[in-house]
């Protein structure tokens, strides 16, 4: 029996790990039933006096992640996949608002990096109102499809990476459920430009408004990849079905490799990974991951994460 066989046997016999497919070295295994495990609110940069009015408007309100028992008005506590609590990102009920949770590490090598998670996405339930609320976007309530699904905008998984003398870049995968007009698109996308940074604002190059899309503000700077994919919203806003996501990137080649979401594996090797033209300081070996959720309606959008596993081949 080889070392590899022993490792595979140990992983498959462990009910906590056997639902993942980790690379050889596990950097982080975050089951949110036991805490937030370092996933925290993202905030833009501020000056030397702690003056938060110097934070970029579009990066000042990404909301604190919550430990959620997935409590709902109709059935009470839903609970998570691996226990009672999940990590919840919640937007404000403001069109375009984004909630972001980030996890900060550094790289001790280069090569493959894989993030796996079990996630669910929901819109907040609407209570009361008139019959007009049975319609939203492309949906007319018919006992199966529910307007809540059309009130969900998009969620994103991404990195912030830097090294080799300040060369900084992001890898990004976004599921766009609806466009900004609330029509279903149900597609995977990535930006063709790097994310605007506080330094670019400081230098007067960019100034974005509150609720701008911080990953890439111009919708024309996003490019679809793979084929459209319908996920399991499951009819109403209070049923939580967990989806598997596995995302592989290569920090040696500075590119994406592939994205698996449930039974779909998408080749991402040709998805652009545009680096910043200018070099960045204080970020050597930066290895950040973030999840975000953005509402395209005036309804709160939620991204629930049961667990996250980050592994590498170095």
């Amino acid at each position: 029996m080889t070392t590899s066989d022993v490792r595979a046997a140990l992983l498959s016999a462990d009910p906590r790990l056997s639902k993942f497919s980790p690379l050889p070295r596990i950097l982080a295994f975050d089951e949110f039933d036991s805490g937030t495990h370092g996933w925290t609110e993202l905030l833009g940069n501020y000056n030397g006096r702690g003056d938060l009015s110097t934070v970029d408007d579009h990066m000042r309100d990404f909301r604190p992640p919550q430990l959620s028992a997935c409590n709902f008005f109709d059935i009470g506590t839903h609970g998570a996949l691996s226990g009672t609590y999940a990590l919840k990102l919640a937007t404000r009920p403001h069109k375009g608002h984004t909630a972001v949770a980030i996890r900060r590490l550094t790289m001790s090598g280069r090569g493959l990096v894989q993030l796996e998670t079990y996630f669910a996405f929901k819109s907040e339930a609407t209570l009361g109102g008139g019959a007009e609320l049975d319609n939203f976007g492309d949906v007319q309530w018919d006992g199966n499809t529910h307007p809540s699904e059309a009130q969900f905008g998009a969620f994103t998984v991404a990195t912030d990476l830097c090294g080799d003398g300040g060369l900084r870049y992001h890898t990004v995968a976004r599921y766009q459920n609806t466009d900004l007009d609330n029509h279903f698109t149900r597609r995977w996308m990535a930006p063709t430009v790097p994310e605007p940074t506080p330094r670019e604002h400081f230098e007067g190059k960019v100034k974005l408004e509150y609720a701008a899309d911080f990953t890439a503000p111009n919708p024309e700077d996003w490019q679809a990849f793979g084929e459209p994919q319908e996920l399991c919203y499951n009819e109403v806003p209070t049923k939580v079905n967990w989806h598997y996501l596995r995302w592989l990137i290569d920090t040696d080649k500075r590119r994406n490799v592939e994205l698996q979401v449930n039974d779909r594996v998408m080749d991402m090797r040709d998805v652009p990974v545009p680096p910043y033209e200018e070099r960045y300081e204080t970020l050597e070996n930066l290895l950040n991951f973030y999840f975000s959720v953005r509402t395209h309606s005036s309804v709160r959008n939620f991204l629930f994460l049961d667990s996250v596993l980050i592994s590498v081949d170095w």
Binding site: L67, S68, A69, T77, T84
Partner: peptide, 8 residues
């Protein structure tokens, strides 16, 4: 303020 979950 925005709702905040504190079940735990």
């Amino acid at each position: 303020t925005e709702p905040y979950e504190v079940a735990w």
